[in-house]
């Protein structure tokens, strides 16, 4: 359902994403792994149509993002990095805004809000201003916004960032469950997450894909059989990469 072909993005002379290609089908959860600055967020922003690619193409549900941006955006739910939200709004009015923007009205809107509130455990903070919420709740409010229209495609940029271990576990379980009927890409730099939630993983380093396979396959490629060792063997740390550039 998501098809990325030779996608590249340059900021000035810096190549943030360099010829990335992959596909994600329905029922797949793709883990997007890589050190900080590898180009994960930039790739996701191009898939969601937030930034245009310098080269290459993205299509979602058979539609090219560049040609049909609005149609494509309808079928995507997106959790941006750092989970932004309108902090002066209450959780409920924020979710209502997101639902209205997705074309939901009346009973459909109310039941959509009920559904995501239950999924993301927001019952007790509905009337609270987002400003006053803890980071975990803020994060889940933004996640709820991404799920409100029950999209076919989910793009989640570090969905477990800033959550405590229990919340992380819950979000992973949620992703795995939703992955049965959707196409999901989520980025992370936590390796256990890949084993816990993904059907397949891509490791990306300095804008290029350096590995692509099921978690089991990737683990098998490390001498020690550990995903972490494999990850470390094929990616460079941020400081090294900057020094080399």
């Amino acid at each position: 359902m998501i098809k990325v072909e030779n996608l590249s993005k340059s900021f000035g002379s810096k190549r943030a994403v360099d010829g990335v290609s992959f596909e994600v089908g329905k029922g797949e959860v793709l883990g997007f792994l890589g050190p900080n600055g590898a180009g994960k967020s930039t790739t996701m922003r191009m898939i969601t149509g937030f930034i245009p690619p310098s080269a290459g193409a993205v299509s979602v549900c058979g539609l090219a993002v560049q040609e049909n941006p609005i149609e494509v955006k309808r079928s995507i739910g997106y959790l941006p990095e750092a989970a932004p939200s309108y902090t002066e709004m209450s959780v409920l009015s924020f979710l209502r805004f997101a639902a209205e923007m997705r074309g939901l009205r009346g009973e459909a809107l109310r039941s959509a809000i009920r559904r995501v509130v239950e999924l993301c455990h927001l019952e007790n903070v509905l009337g609270q201003t987002i400003d006053t919420l803890s980071k975990g709740f803020r994060h889940r409010t933004c996640l709820a916004q991404a799920l409100i229209h029950d999209p076919e495609v989910l793009i989640l940029d570090e969905p477990t960032d800033g959550l405590d271990p229990n919340q992380k576990h819950e979000v992973r379980t949620l992703i795995r469950k939703m992955g049965e009927s959707k196409a999901i890409i989520f980025s992370t730099h936590i390796l256990e997450e890949v084993e816990a939630a993904c059907t397949r993983a891509i490791i990306i380093d300095r804008g290029r894909i350096v590995a692509n396979g099921t978690p089991t396959e990737l683990k098998a490629r490390a001498a020690t059989g550990k995903l972490e060792d494999f990850f470390r063997s094929i990616t460079r740390s941020d400081t090294l990469a900057e020094g080399a550039a």
Binding site: F50, I70, P80, A82, P84, T87, G103
Partner: peptide, 14 residues
Amino acid sequence: RLGTIELLLTMPVA
């Protein structure tokens, strides 16, 4: 500043 521009412009609006 809030980063909400990324939410707003990835919703189905021009």
